[in-house]
Computed example of a mutant assay.
Amino acid sequence: MDPLSLLVGAGIAVTGFLAGRFGGRRRTAERPELPEPVCTCGHGLAYHDQESQACHGLVKTPVEFDKVYGAVDFEMRQCTCRRYVGPVALETFYAPEITD
């Protein structure tokens, strides 16, 4: 091999190494966050009863008010939500295996 082709090959290798070392890193595609099942009351599906759909969560409710600052004192009370209206997970179905 002639020395010129060796120098060209070494130059290409060094250029590729430096470009990979100091060049911008590839960013991996981030997965979009899954939506959390949240009702209009702010509670998830787990806080709602399956049959009656009533909410079992607690809500911060204002008790005392002031003319200047608005609500001054709060109390935790039962949520008055009557039905879950958020997204529902897909149901899983059992299908027996098909055999010939």
Rank of each mutant, 00 (worst) to 15 (best):
R82I: 06
L18G: 00
P35S: 06
T40R: 15
C39L: 06
V72N: 09
G20F: 01
G42W: 01
L45M: 13
A10G: 09
A54Y: 08
R31V: 06
F74Y: 14
G86I: 01
R26I: 09
G23F: 01
A89C: 05
L58T: 10
Y69E: 10
G24C: 03
H48G: 07
E64D: 13
F74H: 09
D49L: 12
A13Y: 06
T92V: 11
A46K: 09
G42T: 02
R83S: 12
T28V: 12
T40K: 15
G44P: 02
T28K: 10
Q78R: 14
F22G: 01
L45Q: 09
G42S: 01
C41M: 08
M76T: 08
P37T: 05
G24M: 08
C55Y: 02
V68W: 14
G23C: 00
G11Y: 06
R26C: 02
L90N: 15
E75C: 03
L45C: 12
Y94H: 11
Y84G: 01
T61K: 13
H56Y: 12
K67Q: 15
T40V: 15
L34M: 10
G70K: 02
F65I: 04
G70M: 01
C41L: 08
C39T: 03
E30Y: 11
G16V: 00
F65M: 06
P32R: 12
E36Q: 14
C39H: 00
E33I: 14
V14F: 07
D66N: 11
P87Y: 03
V59H: 04
S52M: 05
Q53P: 00
T40I: 13
L58N: 11
Y69Q: 10
A46P: 03
C41N: 04
E91R: 15
E91K: 15
E91F: 13
A54P: 02
E33D: 14
L34S: 08
E75N: 02
K67Y: 13
G23P: 00
C79M: 07
E30M: 11
V59Q: 04
D73N: 14
